[in-house]
Amino acid sequence: MSETSKLKKVSIVVSKGSLESVYPGLIMANGARMEGIESSLFFTFFGLHAIVKKKMDHLKVATVGNPALCFPTPMGMSMPTWMGAIPGVSAFATSMMKKEMDKLDIPPVSEFIEMIHDAGGTIYACKATVDMFNLSMDDFCPEVDKVLTVGEFYELSSDAQIIFT
């Protein structure tokens, strides 16, 4: 890719709070920093759980309404969707996925956020959601730089590619 067309900045919106919804955003933000691309993460709605101290390391895989769910062998046996609602199935799927991720050196959410922040990535929380969930800065992990309105988010992203997850 030529210098002029090189991607310079990304703003990644994380809007969902299940484990499999949060990690892609974190991996993309971290991967951007590794490529010398500026990156910001903007957490909104249930995505906000990924930066709430009490919640961030307890995110779970969504097993209800997820027809793609299968055992972690190569394209393993799929799980009937009704099984996803059985108590403990989400916890089981979560622990399986965390085990596989650990093998790939993908860190737990809190450590990942710290890594991205140390790498120079910025972490924002969405003001509307913060107000809606009655949260304050004390509820967030220390890496959160600022609570932003959507307008401020667009201002900060004016020269960035916006990625919604």
Binding site: R33, M34, E111, M115, D118
Partner: peptide, 27 residues
């Protein structure tokens, strides 16, 4: 090794790694 392994096993903080090798640290 990736950034996490360099931090955890190599004991080199991520911030320092980015200061030493700016732009694309691992590459």
């Amino acid at each position: 090794p990736g950034i996490r392994r360099i931090k955890k096993v190599g004991n080199i903080p991520t911030k320092e790694l980015y200061e030493l090798f700016p732009d694309k640290p691992i590459k």
